[in-house]
Amino acid sequence: MAEFFQNSVFFGSLVSLAFYGVGVLLKQKLKLAIFNPLLVAILLTMAFLLVFDIDYETYHAGAKYLSFLLTPATVALAIPLYEQFQKLKENAAAVAVGIITGVVTSMVSVLILCRLFGLGHVEYVTLLPKSITTAIGMGVSEELGGYVAITVAVIIVTGIIGNIIAQGVCRIFRITHPVAKGIGIGSASHAIGTTKAMELGEVEGAMSGLSIALSGILTVLLAGVFAKFM
């Protein structure tokens, strides 16, 4: 039976989609931020694999086809960006300030917290690229000698946290301008946060998508400098 699941092309993707569907339903019925469809899908899929004693590899043999679309989907973020280019031009200075602030704040806060928690240099450089998109963050962590597997885990969890708290943070800190919301969400939680920004609106989504590219590239340039601070 396990062999059948391993060879099944659709099992992993179907399970993921079905639980995402459950997440969407729960959110519609209960209207609570904690029932984030992505979070529900992840937790239910994990529970499913544990209960039925299915290896991650078995699940992933089919589910990897969902991730296959990630690069084209990220490329497609250029479309809302193009449609909102006027908004970007009008706010170019604000966007630049916001993204630089986001990247520097991310690395400074990681530096301070690593010192507070008494972590070493390797843990520090592992966490430095935590706010940027996975593929760039992995490269940065590898180059600086971090634990790449931990970097990937931390980046994904950061994205999920960002996705869940985005609306709450914007409300508490009175971030109401759609451009500011998008830049904040994208700078803090890359593509996974951007999926939430897309739900909030076209401008939010476009600006969040822009932040993925810009904050990622800026982090590549600055991480080497920050790595020397601890």
Binding site: N91, A94, V97, A166, F173, G184, I185, A188
Partner: peptide, 17 residues
């Protein structure tokens, strides 16, 4: 860091706007 970065970046952008 996720809360701090989102707030700092969003507030900075909004302040300039």
């Amino acid at each position: 860091t996720t809360v701090v970065v989102m707030a700092a970046s969003g507030c900075a952008t909004q302040a300039v706007i």
